[in-house]
């Protein structure tokens, strides 16, 4: 299963260096190769097995979101309002159990709590009491010392990657908060069409095996993928001209964990990682109507 989306509060600090050399295989990240890479990996050789003419399998290869969604303006206002209610009306907190009196931790907690109160509820709340005696002065000095200790520089990686800026549709880095799907550009009847990776079923093979085999045959073995189920997630029936019986195309859902597509350059001309809206303009009408309900809107 794919990695969870990340937000700014839960990011491993050393990730940029770590992912530079691809030690972690948990995310679909690798330096992208152009579409015309040499087929260095061993691709399954075309076998002489008997194939069924009318049954085909296709794989909807998904890159799950790896960034958290930006909440809408309404959501942010709603959450802020609920946080203010919560701060005003929460059940009493038993300080005396959790903190020893006069401890460093208690001081830190109180300072943080005052800052949060001030931020949430506005001016008269969260202000330090009038500093009349030496005790409170010492207290505030201690608080500022504690705060200085905790202040750390945090490096922030932008949500918008280089792939977004250059609109590189081959990159897996683009649109981190959306579901992306793989489309391949192929030659079909002297025409270039965009399709999911697909292929035919061989005799003695079950559907989900055929789906996996065809995916590797078209996209190369440089990917770490996982086909979600043995059941197809959709069916597209169409009758092409000249054939008596309609052709059946079964769709399977898969996730990409690591690696990148390396098309063999003969059948597949190009590839793209696209969101649902971007796919509509590349697919022809009939095919789009057949596949659109299998894709995630978000």
């Amino acid at each position: 299963m794919s990695a969870l989306p990340r937000c700014s509060s839960c990011f491993p600090r050393s990730a940029s260096t770590r992912h530079g050399i691809i030690l972690s295989r948990s995310l679909a990240t690798e330096a992208s190769a152009g579409p015309s890479t040499t087929p260095a990996q061993p691709t399954p050789a075309p076998s002489k097995a008997k194939i069924y003419e009318t049954i085909r399998t296709a794989v909807i290869l998904n890159r799950a979101p790896f960034l958290t969604r930006i909440p809408s303006r309404f959501e942010r206002a709603f959450h802020a309002y609920q946080q203010r209610i919560q701060r005003a009306l929460h059940n009493p907190f038993p300080y005396e159990f959790y903190f020893k009196q006069g401890s460093l931790l208690e001081t830190k907690f109180q300072a943080e709590e005052r800052r949060r109160e001030r931020m949430m509820l506005g001016a008269p709340f969260g202000l330090a009491e009038a500093q009349t005696n030496a005790g409170t002065k010492a207290q505030s000095a201690r608080e500022s010392a504690v705060e200085a200790l905790d202040r750390e520089e945090e490096e922030i990686i932008p949500r918008i990657s280089k792939a977004d800026e250059s609109n590189d549709v081959r990159s897996l880095d683009r649109k981190g908060e959306r579901n992306l799907y793989l489309l391949l550009q192929k030659n079909s009847d002297d025409k270039q069409v965009w399709r999911f990776p697909e292929g035919q079923l061989q005799k003695g093979e079950v559907l989900h095996e055929a789906a996996e085999r065809n995916l590797f045959a078209e996209c190369g073995a440089g990917m770490d993928t996982w086909v979600v189920s043995r059941n197809p997630v959709g069916l597209y029936r169409h009758s092409s001209t000249g054939t008596p019986s309609p052709s059946h195309l079964f769709f399977y859902k898969a996730h990409i964990m690591a690696g990148q597509v390396r098309p063999n350059g003969t059948n597949v001309l190009d590839y793209a990682w696209l969101t649902k809206e971007e796919m509509e303009e590349r697919l022809d009408k009939e095919y789009w109507v057949a596949v659109r309900d299998m894709l995630s809107d978000f």
Binding site: S8, F11, L27, E155, I156, P158, A163, L172, Q260
Partner: peptide, 12 residues
């Protein structure tokens, strides 16, 4: 992909 992928910490 780019040398510093955008996996992970996202700017607010």
């Amino acid at each position: 992909m780019s040398a510093a992928p955008a996996v992970g910490r996202a700017a607010a």
